[in-house]
Nucleic acid binder design. Sequence first.
DNA 1: TAAAAATACTCCATAGGTATTTTAT
DNA 2: ATAAAATACCTATGGAGTATTTTTA
Lengths: 131, 131
Amino acid sequence: MTVEALRQFRALVETGGFRSAAARVHRSQPAVSQQLKSLESELGHVLLDRKTCKPTPAGLRLYEHACRLLTDVESIRRELGEFDESRVRELRLGTSDTTALYVLPPVIRRFARAMPHTHVEIVNRSTSAIA
Amino acid sequence: MTVEALRQFRALVETGGFRSAAARVHRSQPAVSQQLKSLESELGHVLLDRKTCKPTPAGLRLYEHACRLLTDVESIRRELGEFDESRVRELRLGTSDTTALYVLPPVIRRFARAMPHTHVEIVNRSTSAIA
DNA sequence: TAAAAATACTCCATAGGTATTTTAT
DNA sequence: ATAAAATACCTATGGAGTATTTTTA
């Protein structure tokens, strides 16, 4: 049972559909299907009625716990986030489309992992404008 | 931030050492080191003083949240577990040492994943005794 | 028949393990 | 000198994606 699975489950219950839930949590629809499936097999219960996308009794119980738990996770993040001292919070970056498309993705991915607290903003303009 | 990382962090705080924490959560010592490291980089704080193995102020806050959250996870498991109806709960298995050593591990792994609620008990005896 | 969910498959990130080095007592 | 933690490296698992099939309204 991962936090991520619970996030997705909450989205399922609250949006009432796999596609909508996927959109809410920024995942693909099959990813949400899979997480639900593994959650169900771990807990040993069907959690969601596939016709109506409404939680079963067991699912409803889980939903309530999940909300509490996720709220708690968010509050941890907020609380420790406020602790923050001197720290770069934002990086603005100007590039051409080509660079943005072919060069940046892996770079940004690594950067975001190394500096999860820095918000990255990318602006695409023509090469000359950027220069 | 995963539930597993929080479990390990709680063990670190409560046992006051990496080796002991690792033993408590059934992981290797480097695994615990790594999880702590990634937790710290995600939350942006040093959480544990490496000399004393005591939590920093931020770590202490996290510890309190972690306890609540983990208790919650356990209560979800317990609550939904009690829901259980007709279900095989135990599988007892007799084998030879050779089979147990060379054949069973991947089989048991798959089985345990597919049937997480069935407790597997393995008894090793000589082939003839098992027969 | 159209929309939604499930399945098949592929790939890659990451968690965990062992072996080893570094650090601290 | 010894014990503990960090680092290096490797492997395997599983989570997520795309493409596709199946299901249902």
